[in-house]
Write a protein that binds this DNA or RNA. Sequence first.
RNA 1: GCGGGGAUUGCCGAGCGGUCAAAGGCGCUGGACUUAGGAUCCAGUCCUUAGUGGUUCGGGAGUUCGAAUCUCCCUCCCCGCACCA
Length: 980
Amino acid sequence: MIIMTNFLEVIREIEKKWQKKWQEDNVFVGVIDKSKPKWFLTVSYPYATAPLHIGHSRTYGLGDIFARYKRQQGYNVLWPMGFHITGTPVLAVSWKIRNNDEDEWKKYREYISIYEKDTKRIEEVISSFTKPENVASYFAKKIIQDFLKMGYSLDTTRQFTTGDSEYNKFIEWQYIKLNNKNLITKGNHPILWCINDKNAVGEDDIQAGDEIKVEVTEFVGIKFILENNSFLVAATLRPETIFGATNVWIHPDGFYNEISIDDETWIISKEATMKLMEQDHKITIIRELKGEEILDKIVEVPITKSKIPVYPANFIDTDHATGIVYSVPGHAPYDYTALVDLQKDEKTIEKYALNSEKLKQINPISMIKVKDYGDFPAVELCQKLGVKSQEDTGKLEKATQTIYKDEYYSGIMKDNTGDFEGLKIEEAKDRIADVLFDINLAAPIYETSAKASCRCGGQIIVAIIQNQYFLNYGDAEWNKKAFEALNKMTIIPEKYRQSFENTFNWLDKRPCVRRRGLGTEFPLTKGEGWIIESLSDSVIYMAYYTIVKHIKKNNIKANQLKPMLFDYILLDEGDIKEVSKKTELSEHIIKQMKEEFEYWYPNDLRHTAIHHISNHLSFAIFHHVAIFPEKYWLPAFSLNDMVSRFGEAMSKSKGNVIPIALVPEKYSVDLTRLHLASVATPETVLEWKDTEVNYAKQRLRKFWEYALSVTDTTGKKNIAYSFPSKILHSSVKTNLKSALEAIEKFNARDYILDGFYANIRAIDEYYKIAEHLPKTEKKAVLRDIIEKIVIIMAPAIPHICEELNERMGYTDYVSLKLIPDIVITNEDLLYALQSKYMTDLMEDIEQIVKLVKTKPKKIHIYINAEWKNVLYELAKKIFEEEAVQIGKVMSASKDNNELSKYMKEIANEAKLMLKDPTIFRIKILSTKNQKNAIEGYTEFISDKYNKAKILIHMADEKEIYDPQKKAQKARPMKPALLLE
RNA sequence: GCGGGGAUUGCCGAGCGGUCAAAGGCGCUGGACUUAGGAUCCAGUCCUUAGUGGUUCGGGAGUUCGAAUCUCCCUCCCCGCACCA
């Protein structure tokens, strides 16, 4: 109990002690050493706007295990870290703090209180966030501290942020390269836009943007011909329904504009006019009008050429698309309901002097055949749901969605749809739109998927940005090269390769400049206020780590970092003399930078979270193949999923966050590292449960105690190991061997499960079986294996291992100790088999003891006759590659001298074999080795059953004690038992 | 919708053609230690049985000497979908 409370405290002190030493001795600083193979790891750098939590430490912790493992394998390892601060988030935080956003202040008070205890200081820090750069610099500083407190073996001398002016030069160079290779194109592009700020908006800028998902929707604006070159433009998502149009709806009280647009005359709502002005049109307003002005007018439907009237409807929203829709009562519940409402509504008919006769003649048109519906799905569904009027919006919404879905997936165009007859709706929809566009009787109208406001209060609409710059990921040659690179890469876990392939196939043009956020100015449009989108900051920056050290050390200025310098260092292009002259840098410094890059690159492994696959990881491959020669392409990615708690992803609003900064005091660093890396496979969401952490804690404590019990002794010294000790020794070896095989494939979980947990269990087991053995032997064997475990498990639990290494009398760092070769001998394999054999045997004994319910005085164990081993080995050979056929065993036995005399017994045995053919797959111990194993455990078994006598009988021997004829039942690996 | 992943014993979660009744954990049950224990340690935890038997791995069909693992169909669940890092 005392040990219990103290254990974590002891460990925590140890953790601090070693972190300090590592830092003081610069143990993890990457320095060129050409005598060693290099290994360059990167883990995606964090975004510096908030404290990191335990979910992040899953990713970084795995990275650290890999880095430490490689280091202990003799590689010269470089694992640097920087910070991402470009884009909008830093600005958004700063903006909210500046505008005294209460929630934001509250959130940041909590964040900062993780690091600062004094309330006044907390307020001070937050106040400083009114300057964006302070947000980034504060968190960058804190996060790196957190990382070091987690024991990560980082080279901290190569830190930078994506906001550094020197780094911006590197990004500028990247874009110059991409542009030179014609990978940047121009075009128009719809985006979400705030009419107030006159600027693009992202999720951060939209009120409740994290809850309402606002997207750009493309409507087809169909031009209903009013008169020559003058149109009523009705917007729809379902252009195929044009064949069912019976009339046009307009809001009688709504305000509309007659506009001149691209040499045509349109009537659309006032709001729509404003929106279209941002959508790449030439517009002048001719006049304003109210909806009622055009009621009862007749328009011509494109394609069908039928003439239909314009009627009033209150469900029309003038602030949605064009504020005009056409009516398809057969297939649209709103339209049907509005039509019925109007036909009954004498008052309205009179008010607008509508042609009542004509109105009442209007009937729904059926033009889509849908499974499980009659001719008029809208009518059917409205009746079924009991829709009363067009005010019944809840039910109408539901009906609309149901029909949309049903018709979309199972609808077929009917014979009144001309060329489109028989087409599935899925297909007809796009075809009809294309035809309409072709004959210039439709135009795309962009609208937001939901009404939304900017944080500034302005309405958000869709705007078309002209001459926008794009990265052309769809470029056939670029794409092909990226695939080529991907095909050569190692992806861990391999199953994510598919996701990359899908991403590559889906990637097309991607806008690469923004008007908002921090970042590098776009070099092609200097002075116009275009910023390079921030994902481009995280695709080839790994290369920058190799040279940033020299930039900082030599105090190189941004304006010295000319493209030709990067060309020379990173691409080996150009002439050093000229570069030196133009950049005013000494040749020596330039050479050093080049040497550093050429030594470390490529980035041997990049480890990140899974959700980066479809963006920055894919782009990283694209940008590498575009810019670098093949020898510098990325060789490998490894990935892990996130951490959840109480079933949900960690987020401030869910209140389930554990900040990394609190890990050392709340848990322990080694404990957390161990748990995070081993409790789940990397591709699954890891649910953090304190009860499970507790398990890891108990095991860690046990390991610590076992290890401490042998720090005062030395290894094996002329002590002959008895059977149980040999078993322990070789099973630990076997476990460590498979642990090393796992981590070699970057499988940290199996590495820990096999190398740590399985070994502790093996020791537990040993202590049970070895109670009767001399203390000196037990200590010797334990010391022997602890030494190995300490070295091999150091990558996972480095602090504890450093401490034990020291307490065992070593003066070097275990973090730098080479992992020994573990060689599994035939003897080890035999012990493993014997151990398994004994576990099974003891289980059998235990089962019988339980059934008999009396304590046995004697335990007779019968080992099978030798000929049975011969038989099984023979059968194994026969069935190695083919199906099991008993006849073959029988005939082969007949030809075998040793077996032919037992044919009767073999017939019985064969029946058993057929029942359980797996027996042919397992390894079998000789009768002698079965006996050896049992003898090695005799004392233990005897002690376990009140000193019962253990008697081993060989079925072959004559005159054995066998009152119940058990001996003949013994099979290889399955001795028979008799308890008395 | 498109694309991907998944469904395992009370729960979480490994396994992905053969010692698989299926790792490990949690929970539960019993015991030890204790004044006590929601601490820790040990044992047990599908059903049956002097053991080598039966029924299980979302549902259904198939391939195989042998399937949780392979194939096909069905049902349900999760994730990603571009100007957001």
